[in-house]
Design a protein around this nucleic acid. Structure first.
Lengths: 235, 235
DNA sequence: TTCGGGCAAATGTGATCACAAATCGAAGGG
DNA sequence: CCCTTCGATTTGTGATCACATTTGCCCGAA
């Protein structure tokens, strides 16, 4: 809704927003990432440039670039006819994603362990409490957000500007699908290995942290195997 | 040079171009990827939207999206002032890239081995001949293109739509820097392990192929260590 | 000669328009 | 009742424009 005749968006009405240089495109991209990671986007559903633009109150232009950036990392799919949609999942694609996670994330956690201390263990404990709470409450959306926060609080400590984007790309790819899995199987069946990870962080046991993360990923694989037994839907 | 008054580019004058649906943006992106992988872009050099657009004979719009897509994978860097430049390399960033390659590529080759046969071994032999030729000739640009072709002929056989983009992203990140390394150290110092890889492909030895690829990557790491002894420039 | 200051050019960003292709709907014929 | 057909709408794509910011360069003063 272009209220102002000026072509640029108003600087959010605050005197000093403190934001270094937040472009509309970045805000849109972050919004889309958050939506994908929390499972607000349903796999197979098609999204439109103008639709997203109107939903976010911006012009289609920043959305176009944000969508392009996301689709470059396979977080969104651009079909041959040009339409945009949340990627669908196939069993082998999911298997590849989990294989890649198993290759990267434990190693990333291993590196991160050196930079994690008891303060981080406490913070992780707090996040994990919210994870457990949303698990028992069955709030899949909150669970996904907090589970992401848990893992990436660890990974961020590695300070890797190369591995982190790769892992983020993987999460963006499988997150929308997980949402549907939780909706079918329920979140109660989850038995993550966060407690062991926290203990490893507190005792500065890098190898233990790596193994805990690996076990956590394998747990997700088991859940999906169980889910596929109950009939895996791709569309 | 908008000769035609029509807004869309002419369909390349051919009756049936056979192209399914080549958008200008995709062509631009492929062109940029090829440029990065062959080392035509110098790290630290800044590129401009309008400059690339004029160079490729298109409007800035498709370039904008292509650059956005590449910067999403850290193949191009967008500075805080908004300017675009080929990313610079730091020792730890390079170390991270090679670590990631060592985590992903040998495993990808291991998977690919099942789908590779003697025909592929012959094709790889041909590519490797051109690699050796460009090595002795000191043609760094051709070397980089053929070396890329060699590795990705193998990786492509894995049929992975998840690991492949990750590995491609890594190559796009380190390729521009390698160009400068070859320019300083020379390509003659390279002793890749392509012959062992070809032998492993021919004998369908998955483990051997994985080890050959790992050795090849480690060889690159050694070259860089040697290069940094002679003074590593970051800017 | 060297260091600022200020003006012009360049650059990224966002908006809007035009157009072709695809999609979706309803109407009509089997 | 189902399928085809045709027209209106939607959608992505590319081009162009306006604007804020920054960069680059030239000129003048110390």
């Amino acid at each position: 809704m272009p209220v102002s005749p000026s072509q640029h968006a108003a600087p959010s009405s605050d005197v000093v927003t403190q934001a270094p240089r937040r472009s509309v495109r970045d805000e849109v991209e972050q919004s889309l990432r958050a939506g994908l990671l929390s499972g607000r986007f349903v796999p197979g559903h098609s999204v439109t440039l103008r639709g997203l633009a109107q939903e976010l109150g911006v012009s289609p232009m920043p959305v176009r670039e944000a969508v392009r950036a996301l689709s470059a990392g396979n977080a969104l799919e651009i079909r041959s006819n040009g339409r945009i949609q949340v990627p669908t999942m196939t069993p082998q694609r999911l298997s590849e994603i989990l294989t890649a996670r198993l290759l990267l994330e434990p190693e990333l956690a291993f590196v991160a362990a050196a930079n994690l201390g008891s303060a981080d263990a406490t913070a992780l404990r707090k996040i994990d409490d919210r994870v457990d709470e949303s698990l028992s409450g069955g709030d899949a959306e909150t669970y996904m957000r907090e589970n992401f926060a848990f893992h990436f609080h660890i990974y961020r400590a590695a300070g890797s500007q190369v591995l982190m984007p790769l892992v983020e790309s993987l999460w963006l790819q499988f997150a929308p699908f997980m949402r549907t899995v939780y909706g079918r199987v329920g979140t109660a069946a989850l038995d993550d290995h966060h407690k062991e990870a926290i203990a490893a962080v507190r005792s500065r046991d890098a190898g233990g942290l790596r193994d805990a993360i690996a076990a956590d990923i394998r747990c997700g694989m088991d859940l999906l195997d169980r889910s596929s037994e109950e009939g895996l839907r791709d569309e």
